[in-house]
Design a protein around this nucleic acid. Sequence first.
DNA 1: GACATTATATAGATTATCGATATATAATAT
DNA 2: ATATTATATATCGATAATCTATATAATGTC
Lengths: 114, 114
Amino acid sequence: MKIDKSLLTGSTTMLILKLLEQSDMYGYQMIEELEKRSQNVFTLKAGTLYPILHTLEQEGRIESYTKEIPSKRPRKYYMITKNGRKLLDEKKAEWQFYATAVNQVLGGEGYVGV
Amino acid sequence: MKIDKSLLTGSTTMLILKLLEQSDMYGYQMIEELEKRSQNVFTLKAGTLYPILHTLEQEGRIESYTKEIPSKRPRKYYMITKNGRKLLDEKKAEWQFYATAVNQVLGGEGYVGV
DNA sequence: GACATTATATAGATTATCGATATATAATAT
DNA sequence: ATATTATATATCGATAATCTATATAATGTC
């Protein structure tokens, strides 16, 4: 199925923070991990991800460090900060609020299941 | 709660079609009805709604007719077409697909409840 | 008469994401 | 040797969706 990418709008930051909440990751890894966890629904593009990472770092939501891998290109790992966790909680609440409202309009029970 | 409006992106058309699936409505009525059904989560702006209605009409998803109301401004009612119902079904499937994937990443059971 | 409410409509600004492109390294295939 | 594929980070311009602001118009209320 070809999903309308515009539905992703606004939730990408939340999904990235969620990944980093569980473990430090480098950019490329996030793209693969997100694809895997969503069962190929989200194919986050590099051109979408990196600008978001840079913005989050500037805002103090995440921090980065470089890790040297023998005979590999160095990887830039990102870790979530306390501030980032706070943002994640807010985004999650927003998402649940929003999804519940959509389901209500669609005639569902309004339970989002998270 | 102040919900991030960007989360609405891509689903507005679906919500409008859903309203029209149940009964013919005029623009202003849709704004009020959507607000009511979503319990004030969605406050659809006129500047968002009318361009969408015009596009949907051009695409043959909806049709309009004018209704004269005594001592009222005439209202332009919209009704959904067969084509519009088809689009609604597609959008609903997309939404469920997307919401399930988000919940999966967030660690939920992946059930969206619709 | 002034103002609020109802109702439709459009233009311009903002924001998010994507596609394309660029750089760099390493492994594998031709 | 050269090409291709995979990994990895990065930026730019285009596109799309929504909002803000504004305009118009009819009606009801203070």
